[in-house]
Nucleic acid binder design. Structure first.
Lengths: 245, 245
DNA sequence: CGTCTTCTTGAAGGTATTCAAACGATGTGG
DNA sequence: CCACATCGTTTGAATACCTTCAAGAAGACG
């Protein structure tokens, strides 16, 4: 439960993620302004909560390293996973609306995040016009992302959802310089199922089927994509987009 | 196809929707600044497109009167409804991310909208700090709304989705001063189904069942909610929220 | 008034879920 | 280091739910 907090000097302008994270497209001068916003870097261990649903919204968080899920609790005690986040991605934008975090954010592996106090962000945004536009874009893209998930949940069958999910992970990993076709799942079958609106057994069965077809190789959490084409063909005709998530 | 455009003098500061729409919570002075942003009011007839997916993003649109749906086209030619919008609500925020509208926006009845050119909005936001915060809140709430739909699609059964849908409509209508328990559906069964991830037959059957149970009265598009309690009980335990949509 | 669209309802079928059991991996304590 | 408990996963069989196919009824519109 306790989040071990370490104060680490962080500078957007020197961060290896600056081409991927919030600074994308900012000029050097504006970028340096961002440095002043970041309060500190924070380390979390697998299973730690970054923030809880219902807490007062204070900060956005950018992931430096690691992997997170966000979940919303249901009245009957079960959780629904609303998203998976990896390095360079921003969490907490749902909190702006009502000054309360809607989601829990939980580390799925040891992770490190940059904390961006929203009050300071707002302040900076006023002084740096390019950042204002940029930040609105990021929020809009979160909307687009969520709408793509809506389409996935509303239109696709289990096979198609899993295919879209794997392709999306693959693409995001590739963007970060990792292998696109050989990776380790950071989440359990149950978490995948929760995200995709399926039961864990269905996820397991469907992965097994992909494995039998020779489209992927599954060994526990180790996934290899052997025939991306086949997966893409499954998804095509459903959402029209391979960047669903 | 052609959108008949009428130039109507519009003033946020004198609009009856100012407590509901973008101006919510703005001070008088800031409110008057908004007037300068609105290019014109635009009338649409039932079936008219307000904007098309793929078009260059130029403006946000606030609904003065009427009712809209937004849809995303799938590769195989079918549409998925991503939202229903009524007076005081803002459409087009998905366009900010990539300067392209992601959705089609289509009037489901004769409607009137205020056009807010985004370039002017950005400009104004720089000069009016309270509007900046306010606008971010609105975007965040769109994110929350979409995540609630995700939960609905991922967790709920047909009955629960319909119940949540009806309760949400009811609540939004009430907010606008209409009867909460007696209203006309603006959309077809197929459009409801598309939005809820169900087939139109399932929507029809489920409404009939609610009717038989005495929870609602259905006469074609005329809906009366007779036992809101029963509908709420259905939804409870699934999302924990009655403001799903 | 006739045509077209939308809606309702039934029956058959398919897909994902539920229930259940067993396996494997992981981690703990003896 | 091994035995054991636990958690996550796989797989099968039965079931539930929604969809598909089909036909008829009711409004909407010209």
């Amino acid at each position: 439960m306790a989040n071990p907090i370490l104060h680490i000097k962080t500078q957007c302008s020197e961060c290896s993620l600056r081409e991927l994270c919030l600074p994308v497209g900012l000029h050097k001068h504006d970028l340096e302004q961002l440095n002043s916003v970041i309060r500190q870097s924070r380390r979390l261990k697998k299973g730690d909560y970054l923030f809880h649903a219902g807490e007062t919204f204070v900060s956005l968080f950018a992931i430096r390293t690691g992997f997170f899920k966000t979940t919303v609790g249901t009245q009957d005690g079960r959780d629904q996973v609303t998203g998976f986040f990896m390095s360079g991605e921003l969490m907490g934008m749902d909190g702006i609306g009502n000054n309360i975090y809607i989601n829990d954010a939980i580390a799925l592996e040891d992770s490190e995040v940059c904390e961006l106090p929203f009050a300071r962000m707002e302040d900076l945004v006023k002084r740096v016009p390019s950042l204002q536009t940029h930040f609105m874009r990021l929020m809009s893209r979160e909307i687009i992302r969520d709408q793509n998930v809506m389409m996935m949940l509303g239109n696709m069958r289990a096979e198609e959802r899993l295919a879209a999910f794997l392709l999306n992970l693959s693409q995001r990993l590739q963007t970060r310089g990792f292998a696109a076709n050989d990776f380790i799942l950071r989440m359990s079958r149950e978490e995948i199922g929760s995200y995709l609106g399926l039961k864990l057994e269905t996820v397991s069965r469907t992965l097994s089927r992909f494995n039998q077809e020779g489209w992927i190789s599954v060994e526990h959490k180790h996934i290899q994509i052997l025939q991306a084409r086949a997966l893409k063909d499954l998804v095509a005709g459903c959402s029209g987009k391979s960047d669903v998530i």
